[in-house]
């Protein structure tokens, strides 16, 4: 009786996810394996191409750099926000939340204004006579990193502020009494206690950047494809849906493996909880 009603309640969601998430995945995997007698042929061919290797490497490198930039900017900011009075903290959190809830196109567009040939940044450098002619930043890998970092910084900060406010500030006071300065405290007391929060944030940023479409599309241009934009190009521009599927599968595998690895690392590093 009870069991039947539980099943009825779960069924719609279960069927929905099954038919529209897992079935489609299987459906795109099958053609990539069935093209020839050799199952892995398409994947090997794809991975052999140096162009594709560059795309995969670029995807990972951009995700890595973005994660680092977000961490370096986000951690101190999160500490600063977390250490404010409750009122100020709430206000700052809302300010951080606003870009997070604003459309990614708009946020990327803002960086087009800044990084373009005649953009704000070049203007500024020219006026300061640091450069004599506009430099190219837009449509480079750097632009993608900047745009992605801007996109994901609020997520990292929000997730870190939560864990930092839960820290017991007396541990830092204890360290200070024992002679630790601000920097020692940051690296020896705060960060070690935040491993879980930091790595959770890193998973979000890394996986998010790696799979994002809009930012590389807008800020990278056609010559700086990443895997997400490659999928679209293969499918929509070149009409090669099987090859697009190959990229999609590799992208899923890479992102899931990386998330899983960071998760494992996180569990290993976090010794604060007794392992049950």
């Amino acid at each position: 009786m009870r069991k039947r009603s539980a099943i009825l309640l779960l069924l719609p969601a279960f069927v929905g996810v099954l038919i529209f998430t897992f079935y489609p995945l299987i459906q795109i995997i099958i053609p990539t394996l069935n093209q020839s007698s050799d199952y892995g042929k398409l994947y090997l061919e794809f991975l052999k191409s140096s162009y594709n290797q560059t795309v995969i490497f670029r995807t990972l490198a951009i995700a890595l750099f973005t994660t680092l930039v977000v961490l370096v900017l986000g951690l101190p900011l999160a500490i600063w926000i977390a250490r404010q009075d409750e009122k100020v903290r709430k206000l700052l959190s809302v300010i951080i939340l606003f870009p997070m809830l604003t459309n990614a196109v708009i946020r990327n567009f803002a960086w087009i204004i800044i990084l373009g040939k005649n953009g704000v940044f070049n203007d500024l450098l020219l006026k300061l006579h640091l450069i004599s002619a506009p430099i190219t930043i837009l449509y480079t890998n750097a632009a993608i990193v900047i745009g992605s970092a801007y996109l994901f910084l609020p997520i990292m900060v929000t997730s870190l502020v939560g864990s930092i406010t839960e820290l017991n500030i007396e541990t830092e006071e204890a360290a200070a009494v024992l002679g630790a300065g601000a920097m020692t405290n940051l690296f020896k007391v705060i960060i070690p206690q935040l491993t879980t929060g930091i790595l959770t944030g890193c998973i979000l940023v890394f996986a998010g950047t790696m799979t994002a479409y809009t930012t590389p599309q807008l800020l990278g241009g056609n010559r700086h494809l990443v895997m997400a934009t490659l999928i679209y190009q293969q499918a929509m521009t070149l009409g090669d849906w099987t090859n697009a599927s190959v990229v999609a599968i590799i992208l899923i595998i890479l992102s899931v493996v990386i998330m899983f690895a960071i998760n494992k690392l996180m569990k290993k590093l976090d010794r604060r909880k007794v392992n049950a």
Binding site: T21, T211, A248, I252, S255, M259
Partner: peptide, 15 residues
């Protein structure tokens, strides 16, 4: 866990 672009791509083929 599935990249959004892949959700759209796969769903197009299935649905």
């Amino acid at each position: 866990l599935i990249p959004e672009i892949v959700v759209g791509f796969a769903l197009y083929q299935t649905a």
